[in-house]
Write a protein that binds this DNA or RNA. Structure first.
Lengths: 139, 139
DNA sequence: CTAGGTGTTCGAGCGCACTCTAAGTCAAGG
DNA sequence: CCTTGACTTAGAGTGCGCTCGAACACCTAG
């Protein structure tokens, strides 16, 4: 698989794929006779996992640590697991934070909704008499 | 209140406070005779609210839109409310996303845990005989 | 009177994660 | 053959949100 196809299939741009390779997040693939990158499909699994880490806000530096451990083989399993667990903790905290902030946001929105209602009520009260007057006059 | 105290009380740095003022996120406060910023405590409420928006990932550009509406008075209430509601939607989606990614992370971690258990079991099996042998010899 | 601490402005610099430009190579199709 | 399009490299540029440096002004305590 050449870089263009990998880009299409992974959702990354070719630029990003080369960048990830450059910083060591993706392993350097084999190159064909004319120097073009030739990827194995298995890279997609790794990219997808990286996407999960990124999707949970893991900075690239930390993904690099994980990638480095992975490169060293199964002896690093425990360390990798610890890294993921630590990250999971952070993400959970972050989610809790978001939810707390959402509550405040909800309250603020509810405040606007109330204000709107009060104004509607006032308008009703203001228009009740003129409305009747109009109807009366209409007869 | 001078900028240093506001920094302490708001959690922002003085640098950030000036920056926020510069981009229009904070209103320009009165200046005293020698040109120093003199803040009203009420600014703290606004800063705290900005913190909530930031805490939910709202980009500064959007906070600026909100701040601008706020500056135009209560006529913009409906628009402000709409802005907040749209943002709330995004945040909720984001939280859902995070949680989905967390599930994948959990599965990955569980995978490491399983691998570890399998190895422990193997070690147990490998060490069972020698262990007994040792205990037997110890008597 | 002077040293230290806090404030001022303006513009430059930083860390992150890409994103793109330039100049060139190469394979396949018309 | 020649064009087209996908690829290659090194390095520059972008957008975001700060963060800091330099040079200077001012107040307060010793």
């Amino acid at each position: 698989m050449k870089i263009g196809e990998l880009a299409r299939r992974s959702g990354l741009t070719a630029y990003t794929i080369r960048y990830y390779e450059q910083i060591g997040l993706l392993p350097a693939p084999d190159k064909d006779a004319s120097g073009q990158r030739d990827y194995d499909v298995s890279i997609l699994t790794w990219i997808e996992f990286l996407g999960r880490l990124k999707g949970t806000g893991m900075p690239i530096r930390e993904m690099l640590r994980y990638a480095a451990l992975r490169g060293k083989g199964p002896a690093t399993d425990a360390e990798r697991r610890a890294l993921l667990e630590a990250h999971r903790h952070k993400v959970r905290d972050h989610v809790a934070d978001l939810q707390a902030n959402l509550l405040v946001l909800d309250a603020k929105i509810a405040g606007y909704a109330d204000a709107e209602k009060r104004i509607e009520t006032e308008n009703e009260q203001l228009s009740r008499k003129p409305l009747r007057a109009r109807l009366t006059r209409a007869r």
